[in-house]
Design a protein around this nucleic acid. Sequence first.
RNA 1: CGGGGUGUAGCUCAGCUUGGUAGAGCGCUGCUUUCGGGAAGCAGAGGUCACAGGUUCGAAUCCUGUUACCCCGACCA
Length: 605
Amino acid sequence: MQAPSAFHLPAEGNVQKYLSPHGKSSEMLRLGQVAPPPQSPPAKRPIMRASEFHLSTTREIPAGAETISHQLMLRAGMIRQLASGLYTWLPLGLRVLRRVEQIVREEMDRSGALELLMPVVQPAELWQESGRWEQYGPELLRFSDRHERPFCLGPTHEEVITDLFRREIRSHRQLPVNFYQIQTKFRDEIRPRFGVMRAREFLMKDAYSFHLDKDCLDRTYQTMHATYTRIFTRLGLNFRAVHADSGSIGGSFSHEFHVLADSGEDAIAFSTQGNYAANVELAVALPPADPRAAPTRPMAEVAPGTANGPRVTVHWMMGRDGNPVGLVLREEHSLNEIKAEKLPQLSAPLRRVTPEDWARLGQGNPAAGLPGADMALIADHAAAALADFVWPGHSDGPVWAGVNWGRDLPEPVVVDLRNVVPGDRSPDGEGTLEIARGIEVGHIFQLGTKYSAALNAQVLDEAGQNRVVTMGCYGIGVSRVVAAAIEQNHDERGIRWPLALAPFQVALAPLQYTKSAAVREATDALYAELQSVGVTVLLDDRNLRPGVMFADLELIGIPHRIVISERTLSGGQVEYQARHEENACLVDRADILPLLQSALNPPER
RNA sequence: CGGGGUGUAGCUCAGCUUGGUAGAGCGCUGCUUUCGGGAAGCAGAGGUCACAGGUUCGAAUCCUGUUACCCCGACCA
């Protein structure tokens, strides 16, 4: 395209008058009012022909692609890897990415948030001001410009938005405000993997809201919760919003949005009957309903194989005071390190006691014996409720059976220490917990004043006093959503896009397109009809053997396929198959348009 | 950063142990026949065997170093 640089490109609706050699434009030219661009080529109709679209599929499973979404994105020709964690989006993949982006944008706009765009490159000063220049690890990619001034590539934009806010917003009357952007992020992940699922460079929607008080923040937070729910619903994904740990970004209150898929990296627990849902990292394990039973037998040292009774395991952690603390759980339960890290008795980055530590402390490994009364013990509720239990011995050595709290061991501090397991009582009291795998695609936080205080972002309140604003932040991993959608929607033949994400809604698959005039005419006519009612269509004019063409269209996951052949055309029919259906069906040519229109516009749920 | 693995044709891989100047399948180009589920025949194109150094008459192959990518652990949307 040769857009004449001296002129604005005409808006699409006005193209005609500029292009017409005889119409208004020449009059206008004569009148000397508007100089049309010289000989702009006619606007090209966006016919999507497979032969011109660079479909680039492969049969082989690419080496080094572990997850299904990564394999399928490579096989379907959606992405190509440039370097570790860096991907090019090919035309097919970009169409899907844009679909996600557009739905996110529409719903954010609808929520009242305002789109802006911030730089990827950020000056170190802001990060020094917030303290994160030092806090953030090596995943913050730092570099210097030609003047030796330090910069970083933005992994997130709290500093930049807070800086913008403090320069722009003066009065509480301008609040609340919620700014968002859809922008490339860079995190120098230690180990990028799973394709765009965990890339170093990725596309993210991040929003930041500003408020004078917590109530106002709460309202926007709820609005974002509802907005995210709308977004993932519109995307056609099976998802859940769960309570979450607020992680390193800090803050008090947060929800994660997970796309459910067996390959997900996170475990999420949710109530079978109630509304409770939480990341397993955070899910509360209720104490057993029944109190501890009384001891019934004496403690005895026995061989490991002969011990009867419930067993416990002990995790020795370094305490804040430098002495070991034993964390006791039932053997069938696993330690929740997030919960453990929050215990005031333990050192803040959790650290296991090493053999060297024991030696330095002048103590033998207590796994070789029962801990004495001077050893600090913290037990999980479930372990604390045991009686006559088995205490572990040293490797193959003897164990202690018939052990009881208070009699053979000091009464422990009792807390929630373990990961929940399926069948646990739900913390909301309704039903029991189930556990599913999820892929985190969204996260909403109440940040509080962490950044606004550090960067001194204040507004004047009603009383004319300066007040530090309180903030929320709301992220969606846009590029990750694409991969997550595939993890959730695929079969042995390839991708099965939810309609909202599909790169094309309909594929036309003519047989003998270049040989049969009847097929070509019928196909072109159908193409034009579909396009005129706004359906996105891919016309596979590659004249491939049917098997190859079908396999390609199924691999790339187009939801609806119409096969046009002389055989069915002679009976006035075409063949229709939905991607998620097992079999095709014959449809009268006259019925195909209404059929597709109803398939593409399902009634509101 | 630890631990492990792999770099050979566009893709997936053999060849390396035992050194002798590089192969298969798929894909790609041309022609012919085929044409409703990844066709067949014929003819072709395509590789400084990741890079550098060394050993050797001779290195994809043996040695040393470097580098890239992948997998397992701590980070994260």
